[in-house]
Design a protein around this nucleic acid. Structure first.
Ligand SMILES: Nc1ncnc2c1ncn2[C@H]1C[C@H](O)[C@@H](COP(=O)(O)OP(=O)(O)OP(=O)(O)O)O1
Length: 415
DNA sequence: CTCCAACGTAC
RNA sequence: CUUGUACGUUGGAG
């Protein structure tokens, strides 16, 4: 059964879902310039030949296309974009390897895994803090995907994947090379940032780290290369940090990113866009909040070709998505509670761009919301906006977020 | 539960 | 012409 993994990979059903996945992503072409929309035709024409090559273990992937994108924190990310065909083949492998590896992975690993979310990871971290482990060792690996060691990874794969064709194909993908400015270069390490299989390979590569941490009885969560270990004291944190860095460099042959990694109280350190204080309250991390504010300002900048209704719609869909992720944070929960309360008392809501502080003040006073729960007119300028679904829920004062630690609900006039 | 579209976040 | 995995929100077809 496990000997015929490649047969399973090229089965009609797997073939079809892999094709669906690549086409629905609708990503950019690789070095051959073939678009996702052209994949259907290509598979109809060469599908059988490709299937035969895969089964014979004679398929050779193309190099990936090097594209640079800016990272949120500054710096550049080197993407490696495989051709649409190679993304399809990797998708075939991903779909058969995932059910094999999923049950073997640690329960504390959350990144890139089906059925596991950032929320699950943060809630687990919160549980640790509530147990009194309010110091964290935050480990981040330097250029993680780009530095994955081929030999080590292939050894890992040998332990669980018996089908040689699958293993050699993965090996070829790792060594497929990159095209930079039209010139193909060899690569001796790394798995491409942009390969459908890369996230799974990354988890396979870091799997021993999970077992090492669990073996040491440490309380931790891991999301891709971002590993957070929770301990009860600053001294323990320092001790564990040094020891784990050594282990990672020796056993995993990876460098720990010294600038991103460190130890400290959980308050002020960020985990997946959140921060957790000593009492276990989850808040929006400063960096994520800053990004949000930046985006809000851009969204609200008046533009000629953009009408008011259009702006409002754009804003609503952005905030809906944003709030769905940060719904775990206390600030957003507070707004939602306030919204429920406001809904019960007011039928009509109003969307406004510029401040109208007096009107709001009166509205709040009529509603019995006390003064310290809202913002001064000075700090609110230009920053009032509506949160949530088109039906509206509450307004948020971006300017006051950090000062008060909560999102401010605001209510408004009739339409 | 599967699939389609739009959008958001994490890495 | 910005790739990938995963999760989530809204809407739609079964
Ligand atoms: N947009 C993306 N597309 C594809 N892969 C990504 C993307 N973002 C992150 N990854 C993958 C590849 C990264 O090696 C890995 C960890 O991300 P991240 O820690 O942000 O950067 P990095 O480890 O490559 O560099 P560094 O940590 O040194 O800044 O997750």
């Amino acid at each position: 059964m496990i000997e015929q993994l490649m047969e399973e990979a090229v089965s009609p059903e797997n073939w079809h879902t892999a094709w669906k996945a690549v086409v629905s992503n609708d990503g950019a072409p690789g070095i051959d310039g073939m678009r996702c929309s052209e994949l259907v035709e290509h598979l109809q024409r060469h599908g059988e030949a490709i299937r035969a090559k895969l089964l014979a273990g004679r398929y050779t992937p193309s190099p990936v296309l090097r594209t640079k994108i800016p990272k949120p924190g500054g710096g550049e990310r080197d993407l490696g974009i495989p051709t649409v065909m190679d993304r399809f083949v990797q998708q075939l492998l991903l779909q058969v390897l995932t059910p094999i590896y999923e049950p073997r992975f640690s329960a504390r690993s959350y990144g890139f895994r089906p059925g596991r979310s950032t929320h699950d990871a943060v809630r687990q971290a919160q549980a640790y803090v509530k147990e009194g482990k309010s110091y964290v060792i935050d480990l981040d690996i330097e250029k993680f995907f780009d530095r994955v060691n081929h030999n080590l990874l292939m050894h890992r794969l040998r332990e669980t994947v018996s089908d040689v064709r699958v293993r050699t194909l993965i090996g070829r993908y790792l060594k497929a090379g990159v095209m930079v400015n039209g010139v193909v270069q060899d690569n001796e390490e790394g798995t491409p940032q942009g390969g459908p299989l890369s996230p799974l390979l990354a988890n396979i590569y870091l799997d021993p780290l999970d077992w090492e941490l669990e073996g040491r009885g440490l309380a931790y969560v891991r999301y891709a290369d971002d590993c957070n270990i929770y301990v009860g004291s600053a001294a323990a944190a320092q001790r564990v940090l040094a020891s784990i860095i050594g282990w990672i460099e020796k056993k995993l042959r990876l460098k720990v990113n010294q600038t991103k990694s460190g130890t400290g109280p959980t308050t002020g350190r960020r985990l997946l866009g959140f921060s957790i204080n000593a009492r276990g309250v989850i808040a929006i991390a400063q960096k994520s909040m800053a990004r949000f504010q930046e985006k809000v300002r851009a969204l609200w900048r008046p533009q000629r070709h953009r009408g008011n209704e259009e702006m409002r719609e754009e804003w609503n869909q952005y905030v809906r998505g944003w709030c769905s992720h940060f719904a775990l944070a206390e600030e957003v929960r507070w707004v939602k509670r306030a919204d429920g309360w406001i809904r019960r008392h007011i039928r009509k809501y109003y969307w406004q761009r510029w401040h109208c502080a007096q009107g709001r003040l009166h509205a709040f006073q009529r509603l019995g919301i006390s003064r310290h729960h809202w913002v001064s007119a000075r700090s609110s300028r230009g920053a009032w906006c509506m949160a949530g679904s088109p039906a509206l829920q509450a307004a948020i004062s971006v300017a006051s977020l950090r000062r008060y630690g909560y999102l401010m609900p605001s209510v408004l006039l009739a339409r």
